[in-house]
Design a binder for these strands. Structure first.
Length: 421
RNA sequence: GGAGAGGUGGCCGAGUGGCCGAAGGCGACGGUUUGCUAAACCGUUGUACGGGCUAAUACCCGUACCGGGGGUUCAAAUCCCCCCCUCUCCGCCA
């Protein structure tokens, strides 16, 4: 959420920022409501001051045994008037909040303005691997090696679900454990295993609600949502809390299944497992001091990259343009791994700095050494998303005779296995 | 799922209708004392919002806040209703 005071005092800046994000939100409407709310507040607070004063006097009179029935009757009417205005204040406040929750974050200065076409490749690691044969797409490899069962997955759950089997399941598990261990042991993250179902407040805190409701699975009877990423439970872990400055920065790493309806992308990436409704992901979440957040952002990107480097997978880093960033992000890098079987780059991580946008929604603050309170900055990155990493391993590590050469770093996690065949 | 107990400031804990933004304690901060540290003593110490005055998030005024929401009342931390959460016991159960 943006700071209403900031909007009030920097209307032009706010409008420009929102335009870069392609937001159609009407700031003038918010400002109008805000002004009305403040007028009502001013009016009702004076009345309340009167009420408090007279009530006190009545209490004293009564204790002296004086008759206060006449005054009481007057005050009853007065209190009702206050109640009426209070109701209007409340109504206006709710209107403002409802709109404010739909206002996206505004991009950082360093973000290129524009749409997807203006995304910039800022880094490439290694080169596309040369094959002296035609690399197969992962769905063919999966079928040949009996690693993933697409057919039975759709039988038991529907299209867009996968079942890992045998060495496929082992590889999936190995990747998860490998990633967790690297982040815990080498990058200083503390592991968290969160619930996969969260309430509406949590979904609102990180910015999935209200705008992305159609993309989420929910258990309506219980008022719960299936998490689309561990970012949601992990960030909201500290909702409503105040850190000490010494607690920061705080790094969490979390494995979770992720559930996404992928509404609006029907017909896209239907083959194989590039886009599925449930996938595994290792997520990195940081809580940091505002002045440190951009430095932390670069470090975070590096932490996610490490995984692909250790796996020996060629990738590129894209700095997203303002219009291609997610709702809550102020700056975002995508990491895209190369998939030779599909001949395309697949997004395996979004590495975002949300500044205080999520912290404001979820009310996550810190107490500075001088006693003042302020919102923390939150950041997160996939570290990294599984099915596409799984795809990249299969397609990049396939041999001419149809085996998968297990990357060195994964072998300890697979009982020393060298080849999947 | 059933029964009971509870939810008050950074923390502990008192408070059953007005004199309560809230005793007391701890902690923190400032000071006195001290060779240094500790102890002791004195003082200060919630947040948000609105307004005034501003260089100011400094100061002044007001309002709200005792788990959340509603109600009763001239007046609610306190009484009533609903909900959430925690703990204990019982039941069920991976």
């Amino acid at each position: 959420m943006l700071d209403l005071k900031f909007i009030r005092e920097n209307v032009k800046k706010a409008k420009e920022g929102l335009k870069k994000k392609n937001s159609k939100v009407d700031l003038d409407e918010i400002l109008k409501l805000d002004e009305r709310r403040r007028e009502l507040l001013k009016e009702v607070e004076v009345m309340k001051a009167d009420r408090n004063r007279i009530s006190k006097e009545l209490g004293i009179s009564k204790s002296k045994g004086e008759d206060i029935s006449q005054k009481s009757a007057e005050m009853k009417a007065f209190s009702q008037k206050i109640k009426d205005i209070d109701f209007k204040v409340e109504e206006t406040t709710q209107n403002i909040n409802a709109i404010m929750l739909t206002v996206p974050n505004i991009p950082n200065e360093a973000v290129p303005v524009g749409s997807e076409a203006n995304n910039k490749t800022v880094k490439e690691w290694e080169k596309k691997k040369n094959f002296n044969f035609k690399p197969l797409p992962h769905w063919e490899l999966c079928e040949k090696l009996d690693m993933v069962d697409f057919k039975r997955a759709s039988k038991i759950s529907g299209a867009g679900f996968v079942v890992f089997k045998g060495k496929g399941a082992l590889l999936e598990r190995a990747l998860i454990n490998f990633m967790l261990d690297v982040h815990i042991r080498e990058h200083g993250y503390k592991e968290v295993v969160p619930p996969f179902l969260v309430n509406e407040a949590s979904m609102t805190g990180t910015g999935q609600l209200p705008n992305l409701k159609e993309d989420m699975y929910s258990v309506d009877k219980e008022g719960l949502y299936l998490i689309p990423t561990a970012e949601v439970p992990v960030t909201n872990l500290y909702a409503g809390e105040i850190f000490s400055e010494e607690d920061l920065p705080l790094y969490h790493v979390s494995f979770s299944a992720c559930f996404r309806k992928e509404a609006g992308s029907y017909g896209k990436d239907t083959r194989g497992m590039k886009r599925v409704h449930q996938f595994d992901k290792v997520e990195l979440v940081k809580f940091v001091l505002p002045e440190a957040s951009y430095e932390e952002h670069e470090k975070l990107l590096g932490d996610a990259e490490t995984i692909l480097q250790k796996l020996g997978l060629h990738y590129r880093v894209r700095l997203l343009a303002s219009g291609d960033m997610s709702f809550a992000a102020a700056k975002c890098y995508d990491i895209e791994v190369y998939s030779p079987g599909c001949n395309e780059y697949l997004e395996v991580s979004s590495c975002s700095n949300f500044e205080d946008f999520q912290a404001r929604r979820a009310n996550i603050r810190y107490r500075a050494r001088d006693g003042k309170r302020a919102y923390v900055h939150t950041l997160n990155a996939s570290g990294i998303a599984l099915p596409r990493t799984f795809i990249a391993v299969l397609e990049n590590c396939q041999t001419e005779d149809g085996k998968i050469a297990v990357p060195d770093v994964l072998r300890p996690y697979m009982g020393g296995l060298e080849y999947i065949d």
